[in-house]
Structures are given as C-alpha cells and as structure tokens.
C-alpha cells in the first residue's frame, strides 16, 4: 500500500498511454458480417487436397508446391471479405484501392512469415533438423492467417496492437479475427499427437500443426457464424 507513490514516479510517462481514455476501436462492423460466405470452407478443401497430393509422402515438397493454390484461394477469399464489408468502405475508397490492398498485402504476408517463423522457433519448433518444414509452416500460417487480417484491418498499428492483445470489443463483428485465433489454437493443439507412439506418417512434423491450423481456421469461421 505504501508503495504506490514510488510506482507512479517510475512510469509516469507511460501512464499516459495506459490510461488513454479511449483505446482505438476496430473497424466498425458491417451488417452483413454474419454470412455463410465468410466461412472459410476453402481451408478444409485445401488441407484435404494437400493430403491427396502426397503430404505424408513428401512433407516439405507438397507444402511448397501447394503455396500457389493457397494464395489463389486466399485472394478470392479477400475479395469476398472486402465485398461483404462494402457499406462503409465504398464511400471512402474505390475498387482500385481494394486491388492494391489485396495484391500488396501478399508481399507483406510473405515478409510476415519471418516473424512468424521466429515465434514458431521460440515456441519450440525444430530449427536445426527441420528448418525447411518449419519455415514452410510459417509461410502457410502467414498466408492463411495474417493475409486476410491484413486485408480486413489494413495497416493501422494501433489496431494490430489491439488484435494482438485480444483487445477486441465484439467477437461477433470480426469474423476473420475469430478464425485467426482459432487457427492459432488449432496449431497449438496440433502438437499433441506428435509424441504418441502410433507411428503414422501423418505424425511427421509439421503435418499435425498444419491440419490443426486449417481446421481451426474453418471451425473459427463456423463458430463465428453461430455467435
């Protein structure tokens, strides 16, 4: 109790930030945010196709070959997301801006795979023995999760900070965000089958995390639809 003044002195300059009256809010929701079109069914389709294209036989190769498919479908999904949120945005920006946003964000997502890779390694992904696989996983996560977020929330750092700290007013109004969090949880839970002694080919690194994140992304979309 006696410590409070001491504390004040230490961080007085930061208190301004801490006690900012109104934390910047997220993009206001559109009426149509609850739509079946927002449910990322293509995530299911993609993960199923990976297996039929030999994910268990050649993990790294298949993951690399499938990146273009992922990007193509994600671009389509980005258009869906933007067209659904049009009510307000059309007043400010035109179609052309959307195109720039959608294609420029691809490069940003590509770059974002590097920090994701670092986070994966920090959280225990193998660095030395499975470097290629771990990086490809980061690339997949980046295009699957970060890319749609970039398209929807664009480049406001304060917004991203709020996203990263779960400082989101209403989950129901942020479909992509719910999917993204669910995808991370899916990848996080995906590690569980790896140590089991079933000796199945799909237990290889990082298939279970990949499946977990894609399934999580889809489930997040479904959950959001019913929120």
């Amino acid at each position: 109790m006696a410590r409070k003044p001491v504390v004040k002195k230490l961080v007085s300059f930061l208190d301004v930030i801490l006690e900012a009256p109104h934390p910047p809010t997220l993009e206001p929701p559109s009426e149509t945010s609850r739509s079946l079109l927002n449910v990322p069914i293509h995530a299911l389709l993609l993960i199923w196709s990976y297996f039929s294209f030999g994910l268990t036989r050649d993990v790294a190769g298949t993951m690399a070959r499938m990146i273009p498919n992922l990007i193509l479908l994600q671009i389509g999904y980005a258009y869906v997301l933007l067209s659904k949120g049009k009510t307000k945005r059309t007043k400010k920006k035109g179609r052309g801006n959307d195109n720039v946003l959608i294609y420029a964000s691809l490069f940003v997502a590509l770059v974002a795979s590097i920090p994701i890779f670092s986070v994966l390694v920090l959280f225990g992904s193998p660095l030395y023995d499975h470097l290629k696989e771990t990086y490809l996983l980061a690339l997949h996560l980046s295009f699957l999760i970060i890319y749609p977020l970039l398209v929807v929330y664009q480049y406001d750092l304060e917004v991203w900070f709020n996203l990263a700290t779960f400082n989101v007013d209403s989950l129901a109004q942020n479909p992509v965000y719910v999917s993204s969090v669910a995808a991370f949880v899916g990848a996080w839970l995906g590690v569980f089958p790896i140590p089991l002694d079933w000796d199945r080919p799909w237990q290889a690194w990082p298939i279970t995390l990949l499946v977990g994140s894609y399934l999580g992304y889809f489930v997040g979309g479904v959950v959001h639809y019913f929120l």
């Binding site: 225990g124 590690v191 790896i194 140590p195 089991l196 002694d197």
Partner: peptide, 15 residues
C-alpha cells in the same frame, strides 16, 4: 495414462 506421453514427458512440460 498414455505410455508415450510418459516417455515423452519433456514435450508435455515444454508445452
């Protein structure tokens, strides 16, 4: 209850 989780307990603690 899982014999492999006992053997690989390290992974669990890392998690």
């Amino acid at each position: 209850f899982g014999s492999s989780l006992v053997e690989e307990e390290y992974q669990l603690w890392w998690w």
